[in-house]
Amino acid sequence: MKAIILEKAGGPENLHLAEVAKPSIKDNEVLVAVKAISLNPADVKPKYQDKMLNMMYGEKRPVILGWDIAGTVTEVGTDVTNFKIGDKVFGMVNFPGVGNAYAEFVAAPEAHLATMPDNVSFEEAAATTLAALTALQILEERINKGDKVLIQAGSGGVGHFAIQIAKAMGAFVNTTASAKNSAFVKSIGADNAIDYHTEKFEEILSDIDFVLDTQGGKVLENSVKVLKTGGTAYTTLGMDIDDVKASAKKENKTVSDILVHSSAEDMNTLKGMLENGSIKPNIYKTFAFEDMAAAHTEVEKGRTVGKVIVTL
């Protein structure tokens, strides 16, 4: 089968199309013929450092990157009960771990997938995986109807799902976005959009119940400032935040970090939200499988509105 492999750390130019063996499946897995792949910062950043690659994938080379897929089941393990050959499925495979998603076929645990809704394409399904799961796993059971929330970087992959999910939960949604993306974030549910180029959210907002942060650093520190007493901030960037956590605790505020994890239960929640229209992925650009390097370059620009998708 064809796969995009990475033989050594480096930039997008190190991603190469190659012929590799089709994976065999375990009893609890299905083999998926991949139709669409979603890219994330978690895909593109680790490839630059051997240390990061070793931590995430081990020292064996070449590496097949990626976790987010949508496709059709072509083989079913003996213990699988929820899927059959021909089913259209989507999910984030083996995160954290090795997903081997940049390939024509992917071996995926049954416990990481859901069947695709009839009202979405393969591209839309693939988009609604890691980023959507991150937003859901942060927000679910942590915000209530009427809460004032702040979603940082609302036009990004995680952000644009977080706005929609928070709105579906009945929250009043503030978000940061560039002026050119203000109309977009409002169209998907943001009640208030703050232009981070010309405005300082920490000088505008106060008494926020919950912050979802994807930026870290000074943005996270300033996010704590706008929380009400007893408020909570969750960040997707959990490195070196002990000082921020300690400072927040002194003010009776909470800062926590989270790492998204594969979950069929959560994928089925997202499936239901896709079906009823409470979330809709925004596909920013689509690339052919052979153009994976160009797709990585696009994600690295940090200016995507929604998701970058690769199709097979």
Results as ranks from 00 to 15, higher is better:
residue 295 A to F: 03
residue 53 L to P: 07
residue 248 A to K: 01
residue 101 A to H: 04
residue 184 F to T: 07
residue 222 N to E: 07
residue 242 D to P: 13
residue 108 A to Y: 01
residue 283 I to E: 08
residue 115 T to L: 15
residue 288 A to T: 12
residue 256 S to A: 12
residue 238 G to D: 11
residue 45 K to Q: 06
residue 131 A to L: 04
residue 56 M to D: 10
residue 254 T to I: 15
residue 116 M to R: 05
residue 156 G to I: 00
residue 64 I to N: 11
residue 250 K to W: 01
residue 18 A to N: 15
residue 177 A to K: 06
residue 125 A to M: 00
residue 62 P to N: 07
residue 25 I to F: 04
residue 288 A to L: 13
residue 149 V to Y: 01
residue 94 N to W: 01
residue 14 N to H: 13
residue 237 L to A: 09
residue 186 K to P: 06
residue 179 A to H: 11
residue 5 I to R: 08
residue 44 V to Y: 05
residue 95 F to D: 05
residue 163 I to W: 00
residue 307 K to Q: 10
residue 203 E to R: 08
residue 150 L to E: 04
residue 286 T to H: 03
residue 216 G to L: 03
residue 305 V to M: 11
residue 87 D to H: 01
residue 40 N to E: 00
residue 284 Y to W: 14
residue 135 A to W: 00
residue 245 K to V: 08
residue 48 Y to P: 11
residue 192 N to K: 14
residue 164 Q to P: 05
residue 36 A to H: 02
residue 111 A to I: 15
residue 200 K to E: 11
residue 78 T to Y: 11
residue 84 K to M: 05
residue 130 L to D: 01
residue 130 L to A: 13
residue 246 A to Y: 14
residue 31 L to D: 00
residue 304 T to P: 05
residue 21 A to M: 14
residue 105 F to M: 05
residue 302 G to P: 08
residue 108 A to M: 04
residue 294 A to N: 12
residue 220 L to F: 05
residue 45 K to T: 10
residue 99 G to F: 03
residue 107 A to Q: 07
residue 25 I to K: 05
residue 146 G to C: 10
residue 244 V to N: 09
residue 275 E to S: 12
residue 204 I to W: 01
residue 269 T to A: 12
residue 151 I to T: 03
residue 200 K to T: 08
residue 240 D to E: 11
residue 229 T to N: 14
residue 63 V to L: 07
residue 296 H to V: 06
residue 193 A to P: 07
residue 55 M to G: 14
residue 229 T to K: 13
residue 241 I to W: 00
residue 10 G to P: 06
residue 261 H to R: 14
residue 293 A to K: 06
residue 231 G to C: 03
residue 239 M to F: 14
residue 150 L to I: 10
residue 57 Y to T: 02
residue 128 T to S: 10
residue 174 N to E: 07
residue 206 S to Y: 10
residue 238 G to W: 01
residue 225 K to L: 08
residue 97 G to Q: 05
residue 142 R to A: 09
residue 101 A to R: 08
residue 250 K to I: 10
residue 189 G to E: 03
residue 40 N to I: 05
residue 299 V to I: 12
residue 34 V to S: 04
residue 292 M to Q: 08
residue 240 D to N: 14
residue 287 F to A: 09
residue 102 Y to T: 06
residue 258 I to T: 12
residue 236 T to P: 09
residue 129 T to E: 06
residue 234 Y to M: 11
residue 233 A to Q: 13
residue 2 K to W: 03
residue 260 V to Y: 04
residue 216 G to H: 04
residue 274 L to F: 00
residue 49 Q to R: 15
residue 120 V to N: 04
residue 217 G to T: 06
residue 115 T to W: 07
residue 232 T to E: 13
residue 248 A to E: 09
residue 222 N to V: 00
residue 175 T to E: 00
residue 129 T to F: 03
residue 302 G to M: 05
residue 228 K to V: 03
residue 201 F to P: 07
residue 115 T to I: 15
residue 189 G to Y: 00
residue 242 D to W: 09
residue 207 D to R: 02
residue 190 A to I: 06
